[in-house]
Write a protein that binds this DNA or RNA. Structure first.
Lengths: 215, 215
DNA sequence: TATTGATAACTAACCAGTCAGTTATCAAAT
DNA sequence: ATTTGATAACTGACTGGTTAGTTATCAATA
Protein backbone atom coordinates (compact mmCIF):
# COMPACT_ATOMS: atom_id res chain seq x y z
CA UNK A 1 0.00 0.00 0.00
CA UNK A 2 1.48 3.34 -0.98
CA UNK A 3 1.79 6.33 1.24
CA UNK A 4 -1.24 8.19 -0.06
CA UNK A 5 -3.59 5.24 0.25
CA UNK A 6 -2.19 4.69 3.70
CA UNK A 7 -2.90 8.25 4.62
CA UNK A 8 -6.45 7.96 3.40
CA UNK A 9 -7.57 4.56 4.53
CA UNK A 10 -5.29 3.05 7.11
CA UNK A 11 -5.31 3.64 10.82
CA UNK A 12 -3.77 6.92 11.79
CA UNK A 13 -3.10 7.16 15.45
CA UNK A 14 -1.05 10.33 15.09
CA UNK A 15 -3.53 12.28 13.01
CA UNK A 16 -6.70 11.41 14.93
CA UNK A 17 -6.53 13.91 17.78
CA UNK A 18 -6.29 16.89 15.45
CA UNK A 19 -8.95 15.52 13.12
CA UNK A 20 -11.23 15.22 16.12
CA UNK A 21 -10.46 18.63 17.64
CA UNK A 22 -10.97 20.27 14.25
CA UNK A 23 -14.36 18.63 13.88
CA UNK A 24 -15.24 19.48 17.48
CA UNK A 25 -14.21 23.12 17.12
CA UNK A 26 -16.49 23.71 14.15
CA UNK A 27 -19.46 22.08 15.87
CA UNK A 28 -18.86 23.70 19.28
CA UNK A 29 -18.63 27.10 17.60
CA UNK A 30 -21.73 26.51 15.50
CA UNK A 31 -24.02 25.01 18.15
CA UNK A 32 -22.36 25.57 21.52
CA UNK A 33 -20.78 22.96 23.79
CA UNK A 34 -23.89 21.50 25.43
CA UNK A 35 -25.88 21.29 22.21
CA UNK A 36 -23.13 19.41 20.37
CA UNK A 37 -23.42 15.61 20.27
CA UNK A 38 -20.26 13.54 20.38
CA UNK A 39 -21.75 11.23 17.73
CA UNK A 40 -21.80 14.22 15.39
CA UNK A 41 -18.24 15.22 16.23
CA UNK A 42 -17.03 11.69 15.56
CA UNK A 43 -19.02 11.45 12.33
CA UNK A 44 -17.57 14.72 11.04
CA UNK A 45 -14.09 13.40 11.78
CA UNK A 46 -14.99 10.22 9.92
CA UNK A 47 -14.83 7.86 12.89
CA UNK A 48 -17.20 6.42 15.48
CA UNK A 49 -17.82 7.71 18.96
CA UNK A 50 -15.86 4.84 20.48
CA UNK A 51 -12.78 6.02 18.63
CA UNK A 52 -13.19 9.50 20.08
CA UNK A 53 -12.93 7.97 23.54
CA UNK A 54 -9.62 6.32 22.59
CA UNK A 55 -8.11 9.81 22.40
CA UNK A 56 -10.09 11.92 24.87
CA UNK A 57 -11.29 10.98 28.34
CA UNK A 58 -14.51 12.98 28.28
CA UNK A 59 -16.46 15.63 26.43
CA UNK A 60 -14.92 18.24 28.68
CA UNK A 61 -11.39 16.97 27.96
CA UNK A 62 -12.17 17.34 24.26
CA UNK A 63 -13.26 20.93 24.87
CA UNK A 64 -10.07 21.71 26.72
CA UNK A 65 -7.99 20.23 23.92
CA UNK A 66 -9.93 22.22 21.31
CA UNK A 67 -9.00 25.47 23.03
CA UNK A 68 -5.43 24.65 24.01
CA UNK A 69 -4.24 22.98 20.85
CA UNK A 70 -6.27 25.24 18.62
CA UNK A 71 -5.02 28.67 19.45
CA UNK A 72 -1.62 28.44 21.10
CA UNK A 73 0.30 27.60 17.89
CA UNK A 74 -1.26 30.56 16.07
CA UNK A 75 -0.39 32.80 18.99
CA UNK A 76 3.25 31.72 18.98
CA UNK A 77 3.41 32.28 15.24
CA UNK A 78 2.03 35.76 15.77
CA UNK A 79 4.46 36.62 18.55
CA UNK A 80 7.40 35.50 16.41
CA UNK A 81 6.23 37.71 13.56
CA UNK A 82 6.10 40.92 15.55
CA UNK A 83 9.37 40.80 17.37
CA UNK A 84 11.17 42.55 14.53
CA UNK A 85 9.26 45.72 13.61
CA UNK A 86 10.65 47.92 16.33
CA UNK A 87 10.95 51.17 14.39
CA UNK A 88 7.58 52.48 13.30
CA UNK A 89 4.90 52.23 16.02
CA UNK A 90 2.03 53.04 13.68
CA UNK A 91 3.10 50.41 11.20
CA UNK A 92 3.77 47.93 14.01
CA UNK A 93 0.33 48.36 15.54
CA UNK A 94 -1.31 48.12 12.12
CA UNK A 95 0.58 44.90 11.40
CA UNK A 96 -0.46 43.41 14.74
CA UNK A 97 -4.14 44.23 14.34
CA UNK A 98 -4.30 43.09 10.72
CA UNK A 99 -2.10 40.12 11.60
CA UNK A 100 -4.60 39.03 14.23
CA UNK A 101 -7.30 39.13 11.62
CA UNK A 102 -5.30 37.20 9.02
CA UNK A 103 -3.95 34.61 11.42
CA UNK A 104 -6.96 34.09 13.69
CA UNK A 105 -10.04 36.16 12.89
CA UNK A 106 -10.35 35.16 9.26
CA UNK A 107 -9.42 31.49 9.81
CA UNK A 108 -11.30 28.62 11.45
CA UNK A 109 -9.82 29.80 14.73
CA UNK A 110 -12.01 32.89 14.48
CA UNK A 111 -14.80 30.99 16.20
CA UNK A 112 -12.80 30.47 19.38
CA UNK A 113 -13.54 33.89 20.88
CA UNK A 114 -17.26 33.28 20.44
CA UNK A 115 -16.95 29.81 21.95
CA UNK A 116 -14.88 30.96 24.92
CA UNK A 117 -17.18 33.89 25.66
CA UNK A 118 -20.18 31.57 25.67
CA UNK A 119 -18.56 28.87 27.81
CA UNK A 120 -16.25 30.82 30.12
CA UNK A 121 -18.58 30.55 33.10
CA UNK A 122 -19.17 26.82 32.52
CA UNK A 123 -15.44 26.06 32.36
CA UNK A 124 -13.67 28.42 34.73
CA UNK A 125 -10.36 26.61 34.49
CA UNK A 126 -10.25 26.71 30.70
CA UNK A 127 -11.34 30.33 30.91
CA UNK A 128 -8.48 31.11 33.27
CA UNK A 129 -6.00 29.44 30.92
CA UNK A 130 -7.41 31.30 27.93
CA UNK A 131 -7.48 34.60 29.77
CA UNK A 132 -3.88 34.33 30.97
CA UNK A 133 -2.12 32.44 28.21
CA UNK A 134 -4.00 33.56 25.13
CA UNK A 135 -5.65 36.91 25.72
CA UNK A 136 -2.93 38.03 28.10
CA UNK A 137 -0.16 37.40 25.60
CA UNK A 138 -2.09 38.93 22.72
CA UNK A 139 -2.96 41.99 24.73
CA UNK A 140 0.68 42.40 25.72
CA UNK A 141 1.72 42.62 22.06
CA UNK A 142 -0.78 45.38 21.39
CA UNK A 143 0.04 47.17 24.62
CA UNK A 144 3.76 47.28 23.83
CA UNK A 145 3.05 48.78 20.42
CA UNK A 146 0.82 51.41 22.05
CA UNK A 147 3.42 52.26 24.69
CA UNK A 148 6.13 52.55 22.08
CA UNK A 149 4.01 54.94 20.04
CA UNK A 150 3.24 57.05 23.09
CA UNK A 151 6.90 57.23 24.13
CA UNK A 152 7.92 58.22 20.63
CA UNK A 153 5.26 60.92 20.53
CA UNK A 154 3.51 59.29 17.60
CA UNK A 155 0.41 58.37 19.57
CA UNK A 156 -1.52 60.51 21.99
CA UNK A 157 -1.08 59.73 25.64
CA UNK A 158 -3.93 57.25 26.16
CA UNK A 159 -4.50 54.67 28.88
CA UNK A 160 -2.89 51.77 27.03
CA UNK A 161 -4.21 49.14 29.46
CA UNK A 162 -7.81 50.10 28.70
CA UNK A 163 -7.39 51.04 25.07
CA UNK A 164 -6.12 47.54 24.27
CA UNK A 165 -9.61 46.22 25.02
CA UNK A 166 -11.25 48.94 22.97
CA UNK A 167 -8.96 48.19 20.03
CA UNK A 168 -9.53 44.42 20.11
CA UNK A 169 -13.31 44.60 20.51
CA UNK A 170 -14.18 45.45 16.88
CA UNK A 171 -11.87 42.68 15.62
CA UNK A 172 -13.38 40.06 17.91
CA UNK A 173 -16.81 41.34 17.00
CA UNK A 174 -16.09 40.88 13.30
CA UNK A 175 -14.76 37.36 13.87
CA UNK A 176 -17.79 36.42 15.97
CA UNK A 177 -20.16 37.90 13.42
CA UNK A 178 -19.44 35.09 10.94
CA UNK A 179 -20.78 32.57 13.46
CA UNK A 180 -23.81 34.51 14.65
CA UNK A 181 -25.69 37.09 12.62
CA UNK A 182 -23.91 36.81 9.28
CA UNK A 183 -26.76 34.76 7.85
CA UNK A 184 -29.27 37.47 8.83
CA UNK A 185 -27.65 40.08 6.64
CA UNK A 186 -29.31 40.48 3.24
CA UNK A 187 -26.19 42.16 1.80
CA UNK A 188 -23.15 40.55 3.36
CA UNK A 189 -20.68 42.77 5.13
CA UNK A 190 -17.27 43.00 3.48
CA UNK A 191 -14.61 42.29 6.14
CA UNK A 192 -12.00 44.25 4.19
CA UNK A 193 -14.16 47.38 4.10
CA UNK A 194 -14.98 46.98 7.79
CA UNK A 195 -11.30 46.67 8.65
CA UNK A 196 -10.45 49.76 6.60
CA UNK A 197 -13.12 51.82 8.35
CA UNK A 198 -11.98 50.47 11.72
CA UNK A 199 -8.28 51.22 11.15
CA UNK A 200 -9.08 54.65 9.79
CA UNK A 201 -11.08 55.55 12.89
CA UNK A 202 -8.57 54.03 15.29
CA UNK A 203 -5.51 55.73 13.88
CA UNK A 204 -7.23 59.08 13.62
CA UNK A 205 -8.09 58.55 17.25
CA UNK A 206 -4.58 57.57 18.28
CA UNK A 207 -2.21 59.73 16.28
CA UNK A 208 -1.32 63.13 17.68
CA UNK A 209 -2.91 65.98 15.78
CA UNK A 210 -0.54 67.35 13.17
CA UNK A 211 1.42 64.12 12.82
CA UNK A 212 1.68 62.61 9.37
CA UNK A 213 -1.61 61.59 7.82
CA UNK A 214 -2.55 57.94 8.50
CA UNK A 215 -2.40 55.75 5.44
CA UNK B 1 -54.03 39.14 54.55
CA UNK B 2 -52.03 42.31 53.90
CA UNK B 3 -50.59 43.33 50.58
CA UNK B 4 -47.05 42.26 51.35
CA UNK B 5 -47.96 38.80 52.51
CA UNK B 6 -50.20 38.51 49.48
CA UNK B 7 -47.38 39.49 47.21
CA UNK B 8 -45.16 36.86 48.76
CA UNK B 9 -47.46 33.87 49.07
CA UNK B 10 -50.52 34.24 46.94
CA UNK B 11 -50.97 33.13 43.36
CA UNK B 12 -50.11 35.75 40.82
CA UNK B 13 -51.17 34.91 37.35
CA UNK B 14 -50.30 38.34 35.97
CA UNK B 15 -46.81 38.52 37.43
CA UNK B 16 -45.69 34.97 36.61
CA UNK B 17 -44.59 35.36 33.00
CA UNK B 18 -42.18 38.13 33.82
CA UNK B 19 -40.92 36.37 36.92
CA UNK B 20 -40.20 33.36 34.75
CA UNK B 21 -38.55 35.23 31.88
CA UNK B 22 -36.38 37.15 34.34
CA UNK B 23 -35.21 33.92 35.94
CA UNK B 24 -34.71 32.33 32.53
CA UNK B 25 -32.70 35.26 31.20
CA UNK B 26 -30.20 35.14 34.03
CA UNK B 27 -29.72 31.39 33.69
CA UNK B 28 -29.59 31.38 29.88
CA UNK B 29 -26.99 34.13 29.96
CA UNK B 30 -24.95 32.41 32.65
CA UNK B 31 -25.01 28.83 31.32
CA UNK B 32 -26.34 28.99 27.76
CA UNK B 33 -29.70 27.76 26.50
CA UNK B 34 -28.98 24.04 26.17
CA UNK B 35 -27.18 23.77 29.50
CA UNK B 36 -30.04 25.42 31.42
CA UNK B 37 -32.58 23.09 33.09
CA UNK B 38 -36.19 24.20 33.26
CA UNK B 39 -36.34 22.86 36.82
CA UNK B 40 -33.72 25.45 37.71
CA UNK B 41 -35.54 28.25 35.93
CA UNK B 42 -38.74 27.39 37.76
CA UNK B 43 -36.97 27.11 41.10
CA UNK B 44 -35.34 30.52 40.66
CA UNK B 45 -38.76 32.00 39.91
CA UNK B 46 -40.11 30.30 43.05
CA UNK B 47 -42.48 27.90 41.29
CA UNK B 48 -42.45 24.34 40.00
CA UNK B 49 -41.73 23.19 36.47
CA UNK B 50 -45.39 22.41 35.91
CA UNK B 51 -46.26 26.05 36.48
CA UNK B 52 -43.75 27.12 33.88
CA UNK B 53 -45.66 25.07 31.31
CA UNK B 54 -48.88 26.89 32.21
CA UNK B 55 -47.35 30.05 30.76
CA UNK B 56 -44.98 28.83 28.03
CA UNK B 57 -45.52 26.03 25.53
CA UNK B 58 -41.92 24.86 25.37
CA UNK B 59 -38.37 25.69 26.29
CA UNK B 60 -37.94 27.38 22.94
CA UNK B 61 -41.07 29.48 23.46
CA UNK B 62 -39.58 30.62 26.76
CA UNK B 63 -36.38 31.62 24.97
CA UNK B 64 -38.31 33.62 22.40
CA UNK B 65 -40.22 35.42 25.14
CA UNK B 66 -37.01 36.19 27.02
CA UNK B 67 -35.61 38.00 23.99
CA UNK B 68 -38.78 39.72 22.78
CA UNK B 69 -40.18 40.92 26.08
CA UNK B 70 -36.76 41.62 27.52
CA UNK B 71 -35.27 44.11 25.16
CA UNK B 72 -38.02 45.76 23.13
CA UNK B 73 -39.31 47.98 25.97
CA UNK B 74 -35.79 49.26 26.71
CA UNK B 75 -35.30 49.97 23.02
CA UNK B 76 -38.49 51.98 22.79
CA UNK B 77 -37.53 53.92 25.88
CA UNK B 78 -34.18 54.68 24.24
CA UNK B 79 -35.69 55.80 20.96
CA UNK B 80 -38.06 58.15 22.78
CA UNK B 81 -35.15 59.68 24.67
CA UNK B 82 -33.10 60.61 21.63
CA UNK B 83 -35.71 62.18 19.43
CA UNK B 84 -35.11 65.59 20.93
CA UNK B 85 -31.35 66.35 20.88
CA UNK B 86 -31.20 67.50 17.28
CA UNK B 87 -28.70 70.31 17.62
CA UNK B 88 -25.29 69.09 18.71
CA UNK B 89 -24.19 65.92 16.88
CA UNK B 90 -21.27 65.23 19.19
CA UNK B 91 -23.41 65.54 22.26
CA UNK B 92 -26.17 63.50 20.61
CA UNK B 93 -23.85 60.62 19.72
CA UNK B 94 -22.31 60.68 23.17
CA UNK B 95 -25.76 60.53 24.76
CA UNK B 96 -26.76 57.61 22.57
CA UNK B 97 -23.65 55.55 23.27
CA UNK B 98 -23.69 56.26 27.01
CA UNK B 99 -27.46 55.81 27.01
CA UNK B 100 -27.09 52.34 25.55
CA UNK B 101 -24.73 51.51 28.36
CA UNK B 102 -26.96 52.90 31.09
CA UNK B 103 -30.19 51.46 29.74
CA UNK B 104 -28.99 48.08 28.47
CA UNK B 105 -25.30 47.34 28.93
CA UNK B 106 -25.13 48.01 32.65
CA UNK B 107 -28.50 46.40 33.47
CA UNK B 108 -29.61 42.77 33.49
CA UNK B 109 -30.38 43.18 29.79
CA UNK B 110 -26.65 43.45 29.19
CA UNK B 111 -26.47 39.67 28.93
CA UNK B 112 -28.77 39.53 25.92
CA UNK B 113 -26.10 40.33 23.34
CA UNK B 114 -23.97 37.46 24.67
CA UNK B 115 -26.96 35.12 24.66
CA UNK B 116 -28.07 36.08 21.15
CA UNK B 117 -24.55 35.77 19.74
CA UNK B 118 -24.24 32.29 21.22
CA UNK B 119 -27.66 31.08 20.09
CA UNK B 120 -28.23 32.93 16.80
CA UNK B 121 -27.43 29.88 14.67
CA UNK B 122 -29.60 27.59 16.81
CA UNK B 123 -32.63 29.92 16.57
CA UNK B 124 -32.54 31.57 13.15
CA UNK B 125 -36.01 33.04 13.49
CA UNK B 126 -35.31 34.69 16.83
CA UNK B 127 -32.01 35.87 15.38
CA UNK B 128 -33.79 37.44 12.42
CA UNK B 129 -36.21 39.21 14.75
CA UNK B 130 -33.36 40.45 16.93
CA UNK B 131 -31.28 41.52 13.95
CA UNK B 132 -34.10 43.48 12.33
CA UNK B 133 -36.12 44.79 15.24
CA UNK B 134 -33.47 45.32 17.89
CA UNK B 135 -30.06 45.77 16.31
CA UNK B 136 -31.51 47.42 13.22
CA UNK B 137 -33.35 50.06 15.19
CA UNK B 138 -30.43 50.68 17.52
CA UNK B 139 -28.00 50.99 14.64
CA UNK B 140 -30.31 53.43 12.92
CA UNK B 141 -30.15 55.77 15.91
CA UNK B 142 -26.36 55.79 15.87
CA UNK B 143 -26.22 56.11 12.11
CA UNK B 144 -28.47 59.16 12.08
CA UNK B 145 -26.28 60.87 14.66
CA UNK B 146 -23.20 60.08 12.56
CA UNK B 147 -24.79 61.37 9.37
CA UNK B 148 -25.91 64.55 11.09
CA UNK B 149 -22.39 65.18 12.36
CA UNK B 150 -20.91 64.58 8.92
CA UNK B 151 -23.41 66.89 7.23
CA UNK B 152 -22.74 69.61 9.76
CA UNK B 153 -18.99 69.24 9.27
CA UNK B 154 -18.45 68.24 12.90
CA UNK B 155 -17.42 64.67 12.06
CA UNK B 156 -15.02 63.53 9.39
CA UNK B 157 -16.58 61.93 6.34
CA UNK B 158 -16.58 58.28 7.40
CA UNK B 159 -18.58 55.33 6.10
CA UNK B 160 -21.40 55.58 8.64
CA UNK B 161 -22.87 52.18 7.77
CA UNK B 162 -19.62 50.43 8.72
CA UNK B 163 -18.55 52.73 11.54
CA UNK B 164 -21.78 51.99 13.42
CA UNK B 165 -20.55 48.42 13.91
CA UNK B 166 -17.11 49.59 14.96
CA UNK B 167 -18.64 52.00 17.48
CA UNK B 168 -20.99 49.46 19.03
CA UNK B 169 -18.42 46.65 19.31
CA UNK B 170 -16.56 47.97 22.38
CA UNK B 171 -19.86 48.59 24.20
CA UNK B 172 -21.19 45.11 23.47
CA UNK B 173 -17.80 43.71 24.42
CA UNK B 174 -17.92 45.46 27.79
CA UNK B 175 -21.46 44.22 28.45
CA UNK B 176 -20.52 40.65 27.51
CA UNK B 177 -17.39 40.80 29.64
CA UNK B 178 -19.43 40.75 32.85
CA UNK B 179 -20.83 37.34 31.88
CA UNK B 180 -17.63 35.77 30.58
CA UNK B 181 -14.15 36.68 31.72
CA UNK B 182 -14.92 39.15 34.48
CA UNK B 183 -14.23 36.52 37.13
CA UNK B 184 -10.77 35.84 35.63
CA UNK B 185 -9.57 39.37 36.23
CA UNK B 186 -7.54 39.77 39.42
CA UNK B 187 -8.15 43.54 39.44
CA UNK B 188 -11.62 44.20 38.13
CA UNK B 189 -12.00 46.52 35.18
CA UNK B 190 -13.78 49.78 35.94
CA UNK B 191 -16.56 50.23 33.36
CA UNK B 192 -16.53 53.99 33.82
CA UNK B 193 -12.80 54.22 33.05
CA UNK B 194 -13.23 51.91 30.06
CA UNK B 195 -16.07 54.05 28.72
CA UNK B 196 -14.02 57.22 29.16
CA UNK B 197 -11.06 55.77 27.26
CA UNK B 198 -13.42 54.47 24.58
CA UNK B 199 -15.25 57.77 24.09
CA UNK B 200 -11.98 59.69 24.09
CA UNK B 201 -10.57 57.49 21.32
CA UNK B 202 -13.77 57.47 19.31
CA UNK B 203 -14.33 61.22 19.32
CA UNK B 204 -10.72 61.96 18.53
CA UNK B 205 -11.20 59.58 15.62
CA UNK B 206 -14.44 61.14 14.45
CA UNK B 207 -14.09 64.89 14.95
CA UNK B 208 -12.49 66.86 12.16
CA UNK B 209 -8.98 68.08 13.01
CA UNK B 210 -9.08 71.59 14.35
CA UNK B 211 -12.64 71.36 15.63
CA UNK B 212 -13.26 72.08 19.30
CA UNK B 213 -11.46 69.77 21.68
CA UNK B 214 -13.59 66.78 22.75
CA UNK B 215 -14.66 66.91 26.34
C1' DT C 1 -0.57 -15.50 17.01
C1' DA C 2 -0.48 -11.10 19.57
C1' DT C 3 -1.39 -6.45 19.40
C1' DT C 4 -3.76 -2.43 18.29
C1' DG C 5 -7.16 0.68 16.11
C1' DA C 6 -11.80 0.83 15.40
C1' DT C 7 -16.62 -0.18 15.94
C1' DA C 8 -21.52 -0.83 17.07
C1' DA C 9 -24.40 -2.28 20.35
C1' DC C 10 -25.19 -1.37 25.01
C1' DT C 11 -26.18 1.06 29.65
C1' DA C 12 -27.27 4.54 32.84
C1' DA C 13 -28.41 9.08 33.72
C1' DC C 14 -30.56 13.06 32.55
C1' DC C 15 -34.22 16.20 31.36
C1' DA C 16 -38.17 18.24 28.46
C1' DG C 17 -42.70 17.75 28.61
C1' DT C 18 -47.24 15.58 30.84
C1' DC C 19 -50.96 14.86 33.90
C1' DA C 20 -53.56 13.28 37.87
C1' DG C 21 -54.05 15.21 42.01
C1' DT C 22 -53.72 19.29 45.53
C1' DT C 23 -54.52 23.87 47.33
C1' DA C 24 -55.75 28.74 47.35
C1' DT C 25 -59.32 31.95 46.33
C1' DC C 26 -63.64 33.82 45.90
C1' DA C 27 -68.60 34.18 45.45
C1' DA C 28 -72.95 32.52 46.62
C1' DA C 29 -75.74 30.61 50.10
C1' DT C 30 -76.90 30.06 54.83
C1' DA D 1 -69.78 35.63 59.80
C1' DT D 2 -69.39 30.95 58.29
C1' DT D 3 -69.96 27.26 55.22
C1' DT D 4 -69.83 25.35 50.77
C1' DG D 5 -68.97 24.57 45.93
C1' DA D 6 -66.67 25.88 41.78
C1' DT D 7 -62.68 27.13 39.62
C1' DA D 8 -58.18 28.49 38.54
C1' DA D 9 -53.30 28.22 40.02
C1' DC D 10 -50.10 25.11 41.17
C1' DT D 11 -47.45 20.78 42.11
C1' DG D 12 -44.28 16.85 41.64
C1' DA D 13 -44.03 12.19 40.30
C1' DC D 14 -43.80 9.99 35.96
C1' DT D 15 -42.51 8.89 30.94
C1' DG D 16 -40.04 8.60 26.81
C1' DG D 17 -36.49 10.13 24.05
C1' DT D 18 -31.83 11.40 24.06
C1' DT D 19 -26.87 11.17 24.79
C1' DA D 20 -22.37 10.67 27.51
C1' DG D 21 -19.69 7.08 28.39
C1' DT D 22 -18.57 1.59 28.22
C1' DT D 23 -17.48 -2.82 26.39
C1' DA D 24 -17.51 -7.04 23.67
C1' DT D 25 -16.06 -7.98 19.26
C1' DC D 26 -13.81 -7.55 14.86
C1' DA D 27 -10.16 -6.80 11.46
C1' DA D 28 -5.73 -5.40 10.11
C1' DT D 29 -0.96 -5.55 10.92
C1' DA D 30 3.43 -7.23 12.69
Amino acid sequence: MNAEARARFSRRKEARPQELTTAALSLFVERGFAATKLDDVAARAGVSKGTLYLYFDSKEALFTAVIREGIVPALEQGEALFQCHGDDPERLLREILLGWWELIGATDLGGIPKLMMAEAQNFPEVAKFYFDEVMGRGRELVRRALRLGIERGTFRSVNDELIVNVLMAPLIHLATWRYSFACCEPKRMDPRAYLDAYLDLVFHGLLVAGAKEPR
